[in-house]
Lab assay of single mutants.
Amino acid sequence: MTEYKLVVVGAGGVGKSALTIQLIQNHFVDEYDPTIEDSYRKQVVIDGETCLLDILDTAGQEEYSAMRDQYMRTGEGFLCVFAINNTKSFEDIHHYREQIKRVKDSEDVPMVLVGNKCDLPSRTVDTKQAQDLARSYGIPFIETSAKTRQGVDDAFYTLVREIRKHKEKMSKDGKKKKKKSKTKCVIM
């Protein structure tokens, strides 16, 4: 069974824990209790493949930012979460993405942009803004509501699919490099 290491990042209060708990335990946590770091595991079937999701729910508070490099190193894919009623959390996505790329030393890291709290009427981040940002990053965008469960499975499952595509691409690139290195030079 394939294991996928997913990391949920975003500013404090955007609903990272609520999304994760909704996926794992099928219930909505409405009281806000700032996370330092929590880890969850769940076995699911995605596109006919049974897999184990190892999900790291991270601290959004700035005082825990020193811990970010460590979990970013171990993560295979990242859910970059903002709240649709919090423009600052949307603007912060850029910083999370840049930090992930720096730590992973790669421009090509599996990510999904997630606009959470889409059940709320007080939207300050337009869907088109988020779609445009995701398009500019070359990553999928999904709106979710941890409260109603809308888009929750889709967000995590899409990230797994992005990781699969990335692994497939990397193995193809690896095979191309191996083929090239088999060419021999004969000096007579």
Score class of each variant (00 low, 15 high):
Lys184Cys: 02
Asp54Met: 01
Met72Ser: 06
Ser122Ile: 08
Arg149His: 14
Ser39Thr: 08
Ser136Cys: 09
Lys165Val: 04
Val109Pro: 05
Ile36Tyr: 05
Gln99Asn: 02
Tyr32Val: 11
Arg41Trp: 05
Val125Ser: 11
Ala155Gly: 03
Cys80Met: 13
Ile187Val: 15
Asn116Ala: 15
Gly151Asn: 10
Cys185Leu: 12
Val109Ile: 10
Ala134Ile: 02
Glu143Phe: 02
Leu19Lys: 06
Gln99His: 08
Ile93Phe: 09
Gln70His: 08
Val81Gly: 01
Lys177Leu: 15
Ile100Cys: 01
His94Phe: 03
His27Asp: 08
Cys80Ile: 15
Glu98Asn: 02
Lys178Gln: 11
Ala146Met: 05
Asn26Val: 02
Thr74Lys: 09
Glu107Met: 08
Asp154His: 12
Lys117Gly: 13
Ile142Lys: 07
Leu120Ser: 11
Thr87Asp: 12
Leu79His: 02
Gln70Ser: 07
Ala130Cys: 10
Gly10Leu: 00
Gly174Thr: 15
Pro34Ile: 02
Gly15Lys: 00
Ala130Pro: 04
Ser106Glu: 10
Ser89Gln: 14
Val160Arg: 01
Phe90Gly: 03
Gly115Pro: 03
Cys51Phe: 12
Met170Gly: 06
His27Gly: 13
Val9Met: 08
Leu159Ala: 06
Leu120Trp: 07
Phe28Pro: 06
Arg102Glu: 08
Gln99Tyr: 08
Ile100Thr: 03
Asp54Asn: 10
Val152Asn: 06
Ile84Pro: 15
Val8Leu: 07
Ala130Gly: 11
Glu49Ala: 05
Tyr96Thr: 04
Asn86Thr: 04
Asp153Ile: 15
Gln22Ile: 00
Thr50Tyr: 03
Ala66Cys: 07
Asp154Ala: 12
Tyr32Asp: 14
Arg161His: 12
Asp154Gly: 07
Lys176Val: 01
Gln70Asn: 10
Thr20Val: 06
Ile55Phe: 11
Ala134Gly: 03
Ser136Lys: 14
Leu159Phe: 02
Asp47Ala: 05
Val109Ala: 03
Lys117Asn: 11
Met67Glu: 13
Glu168Cys: 14
Arg164Gly: 07
Asp153Arg: 14
Leu120Tyr: 05
Ile84Val: 14
Gln43Thr: 08
Leu133Arg: 06
Leu56Asp: 13
Thr2Ser: 12
Ile142Thr: 11
Val114Phe: 01
Tyr40Gly: 13
Asp69Lys: 06
Gly174Ala: 14
Gly115Phe: 12
Thr20Phe: 08
Phe156Met: 12
Ile100Gln: 03
Glu37Trp: 05
Gln131Arg: 13
Ile93Gln: 06
Asp132Leu: 08
Tyr40Thr: 13
Asp108Glu: 09
Lys104His: 08
Val160Asp: 02
Thr74Val: 06
Ile84Lys: 09
Gly48Tyr: 03
Glu143Ala: 04
Tyr4His: 14
Cys51Gln: 04
Gly48Trp: 01
Glu168Ile: 05
Gln131Lys: 11
Leu53Cys: 06
Met72Ala: 09
Ala66Asp: 12
Phe28Trp: 07
Arg97Leu: 15
Gln129Tyr: 05
Leu56Val: 14
Asn26Ser: 09
Gln70Trp: 05
Lys172Tyr: 06
Gly115Cys: 09
Gln131Ile: 10
Tyr64Glu: 15
Pro34Gln: 08
Leu113Pro: 00
Ala155Ser: 03
Lys177Trp: 09
Pro110Cys: 02
Gly138Ser: 03
Gly15Leu: 00
Lys167Thr: 03
Glu107Leu: 12
Lys165Gly: 04
Gly151Gln: 11
Val103Pro: 01
Asp47Arg: 03
Gly48His: 06
Asp33Arg: 08
Ile21Met: 14
Thr87Tyr: 07
Ile93Met: 04
Tyr40Pro: 09
Arg164Val: 13
Tyr40Lys: 11
Tyr157Phe: 12
Ile84Cys: 15
Val160Lys: 03
Val14His: 03
Thr2Phe: 07
Val125Gln: 11
Tyr4Ile: 08
Lys175Leu: 13
Arg123Ser: 14
Lys101Asn: 07
Tyr40Gln: 14
Glu76Pro: 01
Lys101Ser: 05
Leu53Ala: 08
Asp47Glu: 06
Thr74Glu: 15
Gly48Ser: 05
Leu159Met: 03
His166Gln: 08
Ser136Gly: 09
Asp92Lys: 13
Val114Lys: 00
Gly12Pro: 12
Cys118Phe: 09
Val7Pro: 00
Phe28Thr: 08
Lys147Gly: 14
Asp69Trp: 01
Pro121Lys: 09
Phe82Ile: 05
Met72Lys: 05
Glu107Thr: 08
Ile21Gly: 15
Glu76Ile: 15
Val44His: 12
Ile36Ser: 12
Ser145Arg: 03
Gly15Met: 00
Glu91Arg: 02
Glu62Lys: 05
Tyr4Met: 03
Tyr157Leu: 12
Gln22Trp: 06
Ala59His: 12
Ile187Tyr: 13
Phe141Ile: 13
Ile36Asn: 13
Val152His: 05
Val8Gln: 01
Ala130His: 06
Glu162His: 03
Lys88Asp: 05
Lys101Tyr: 01
Cys80Trp: 05
His27Met: 06
Thr58Gly: 12
Gln61Gly: 12
Gln70Phe: 02
Phe28Gln: 07
Asp132Tyr: 06
Lys101Trp: 03
Thr87Ile: 09
Glu162Phe: 03
Val81Arg: 00
Ile55Glu: 08
Ser106Trp: 13
Phe156Lys: 00
Asp154Trp: 05
Ile187Phe: 13
Gly115Gln: 04
Ser17Met: 00
Gln43Glu: 10
Gly138Cys: 02
Asp126Glu: 12
Ala59Phe: 06
Lys176Asn: 09
Lys165Ile: 03
Asp30Val: 07
Asp54Thr: 13
Ala66Pro: 14
Gly60Cys: 07
Ile163Ser: 01
Ile93Thr: 08
Val14Glu: 04
Thr2Ile: 05
Ser145Ile: 03
Thr183Gly: 15
Glu3Tyr: 05
Arg161Phe: 02
Ile139Asp: 05
Val8Met: 03
Ser65Thr: 07
Gly60Asp: 13
Asp92Phe: 06
Pro121Ala: 12
Ala134Lys: 04
Glu63Asp: 13
Lys182Tyr: 03
Asn86Glu: 09
Glu63Lys: 07
Lys128Tyr: 11
Ser145Gln: 14
Asp30Tyr: 06
Met67Tyr: 06
Gln99Lys: 09
Asp33Cys: 09
Asp153Ala: 14
Pro34Met: 09
Asp69Phe: 00
Val114Gly: 01
Ile139Arg: 02
Gln22Thr: 03
Val44Arg: 08
Pro121Gln: 12
Tyr71Ala: 11
Ser181Cys: 07
Gly151Ser: 05
Met188Leu: 11
Met188Gly: 15
Ser39Trp: 05
Met72Asn: 04
Arg41Ile: 06
Glu63Ser: 09
His94Trp: 12
Ser89Pro: 09
Ser122Met: 06
Ile163Ala: 06
Ala59Arg: 13
Tyr137Gly: 03
Leu56Gln: 15
Lys184Gly: 13
Thr144Phe: 02
Lys42Pro: 08
Ile21Gln: 15
Glu31Gly: 11
Tyr96Gln: 02
Cys80Thr: 02
Thr127Leu: 14
Ile93Lys: 01
Ala134Thr: 03
Ile46Leu: 06
Val160Glu: 01
Val112Tyr: 00
Leu6Thr: 02
Leu6Val: 08
Val103Gly: 05
Gly10Gln: 00
Arg97Asn: 04
Ile163Phe: 03
Asp30His: 04
Leu133Thr: 04
Leu23Arg: 13
Gly48Ile: 02
Glu31Leu: 05
Glu91Phe: 03
Glu49Asp: 08
Ile46Phe: 05
Tyr137Pro: 01
Glu143Leu: 09
Gly75Val: 15
Lys5Gly: 03
Thr2Pro: 05
Ser106Asp: 08
Glu162Ala: 06
Glu31Trp: 05
Asp57Ser: 10
Lys167Ser: 06
Leu113Phe: 12
Val114Arg: 00
Gln70Ile: 06
Thr20Cys: 08
Gly15Phe: 00
Val7Tyr: 05
Leu113Tyr: 03
Thr127Gly: 11
Leu133Gly: 04
Phe90Met: 07
Tyr4Ala: 06
Asp126Lys: 05
Leu120Ala: 12
Thr50Phe: 03
His95Asp: 08
